[in-house]
């Protein structure tokens, strides 16, 4: 199982990623203090992109890939995975 995110910028992607790995950092929801350590990726990361049909990816995500700050999202997501991912 893995979690796939589509957040519009690095900070919110990081928050969601942290929630499903180290637990909800805002302590607001049911995952507060629950360290699931799940594998989590953003839709613009190469780990996901390289594993799906390129045409479908282009049709559904190609445009947003151009708009989003992909590098900072990758950096944030990698950092969360390195720290908290158990799988």
């Amino acid at each position: 199982m893995l979690i796939l995110l589509g957040a519009a910028e690095a900070e919110s992607a990081g928050l969601a990623a942290e929630t499903v790995t180290n637990g909800d950092p805002t302590f607001a929801g049911p995952l507060a203090g629950v360290q699931l350590g799940l594998k989590v990726y953003h839709a613009v990361e190469p780990e996901f992109k390289d594993n799906v049909d390129a045409d479908v990816y282009d049709e559904q995500i190609g445009m947003m890939e151009m708009v989003l700050e992909v590098d900072s999202i990758i950096e944030e997501m990698s950092s969360i995975r390195e720290q908290f991912c158990k799988y």
Binding site: A8, G62, M64, V67
Partner: peptide, 24 residues
């Protein structure tokens, strides 16, 4: 919530790039 109009314009422009109507 970011700059909402700007985010919209970026998306419109990106679609223009995808359609080959302008350069990235």
């Amino acid at each position: 919530a970011g700059d909402v109009p700007e985010a919209n314009y970026k998306m419109i422009a990106a679609l223009g790039v995808k359609r080959g109507e302008m350069e990235r």
